[in-house]
Amino acid sequence: MAVFELQDVHKTYKMGSETVRALDGVGLAIEPGDFAAILGPSGSGKSTLMHVLGFMDRPSSGQIWFEGKEVSRISRDRQAWYRANRIGFVFQTFNLLPRLSVVDNVLLPVSYSREKMPDKRERAMSALERVGMAHRADHVPNQLSGGERQRVSIARALINKPSIILADEPTGALDSKNVEKILALFEELVDEGQTFVMVTHDNEVAAHTRRIVRMRDGQIEEDLRR
């Protein structure tokens, strides 16, 4: 069963008097274990696609199945549940909360998951262990370097054992040395079976992935698996 299956998904915005077709008939299937990069110039609809996949936005029309369930018309609260329990997010600017310690940042999705998790601290620690940041658990984000912060945010994405991790330009704010390390970490996670989709405009970064989806004008121009 595919993690995501999209059929003829449209998303239109009104911008003033103009109607913007951010997604214009997208069909896509993301299989378990996929490591995909969505590439495209700005305005191609890749961010909108990411928002739709991340349960942050709803399509104007078309169908989306998530693990076999039709989810294109679910309520906002249900969307929030999926974000907390099924999706892991990694952002370009990390988006850690500066006032919370590293471990509390990692636990943030748990606090909104509304599911019982008795061993949450252990799980947070093992997620931090996985990204090599366990020794910094009690620091606050400002005490960490950019690469370290991105590792923490990956641990946060991992905490609820998500079906898929969505990464939005995850290496955009990192120096080249850290880019390599983070990409290596992604590859390891994928090798362990994690499904992974990232948005990027960097061909070099995309070259690390095993599937490249090129977008233009709200449509999928090319979908290559390697």
Binding site: D77, A84, N95, Y112
Partner: peptide, 16 residues
């Protein structure tokens, strides 16, 4: 606003 966005992105409902 940014913090609210992050909290919502990782699963907070409006109610939370």
């Amino acid at each position: 606003i940014r913090e609210i966005g992050v909290r919502k992105a990782v699963g907070a409902r409006g109610y939370d």
